[in-house]
Computed example of a mutant assay.
Amino acid sequence: MTQTQKNTYDLRHTCATLLTQAGESPKAVADLVGPSDTSMIMDIYTHILPGMKEVASNKMRKIIY
């Protein structure tokens, strides 16, 4: 893999992760980052950032209580 290919690869992951974290729909993210379906975006291109689990946990706590 060349450095240019690696940079493109990293940029796709970063873009997908940040857009998903910002609440963008997986379909819109898939359309933006390239020829991928939504399951591929969610399974491969998005990553858990620090604090995301805590935010999700707090949301669930509010729903339950």
Rank of each mutant, 00 (worst) to 15 (best):
K27F: 05
L11M: 12
L19A: 07
T14F: 10
L32F: 07
T38F: 04
L11W: 14
G23D: 06
V29M: 05
L18W: 02
A16L: 11
G23H: 02
D31Q: 11
L18F: 06
V29T: 09
M40I: 07
D10V: 06
D10H: 10
A30L: 11
I44C: 12
T17G: 01
A22R: 01
A30S: 12
L32S: 12
D10F: 12
L32A: 15
A30G: 07
A30M: 08
Y45V: 06
K27T: 08
C15P: 00
P35F: 09
L11N: 11
D43Q: 14
T17Q: 08
V29D: 08
M42R: 15
M40G: 07
S39R: 14
A22G: 04
I41M: 15
L11R: 10
T20I: 04
D10W: 11
N7P: 03
Y45H: 12
C15F: 02
P26L: 00
M42V: 13
T38Q: 14
R12Q: 12
A28M: 04
H13G: 04
E24K: 07
L19M: 08
D10P: 00
Q21R: 11
G34A: 07
Y45Q: 07
T38N: 07
M40S: 10
G34R: 09
L18Q: 02
T20K: 03
L11I: 09
C15N: 07
M40N: 02
T38P: 11
G34V: 09
T38C: 10
H47Y: 08
D10E: 14
K27Q: 11
K27H: 09
A30K: 07
I44E: 13
A16G: 08
N7W: 09
I44A: 09
D37S: 13
L19F: 04
L19I: 05
V29K: 02
P35D: 14
A28G: 09
D43M: 12
C15R: 09
E24D: 05
Y9K: 14
T38M: 11
A30T: 08
D10Q: 14
A16T: 06
Q21I: 03
K27I: 03
I41H: 01
T17Y: 03
Y9F: 15
T38G: 03
L18K: 08
L19E: 01
I44P: 00
R12P: 06
Q21Y: 06
D31R: 11
A28W: 05
L19C: 04
M40Q: 14
H13I: 15
L18I: 08
T17F: 02
T46Q: 10
S25F: 02
T17P: 05
H13N: 11
M42S: 13
Y9P: 04
V33E: 05
S36V: 15
H47A: 06
D43I: 01
S39F: 01
A22C: 02
E24V: 10
L19T: 06
P26E: 03
S25E: 08
A28C: 07
T46R: 10
N7H: 11
D37L: 01
V33Y: 03
P35T: 14
T17K: 05
L18E: 03
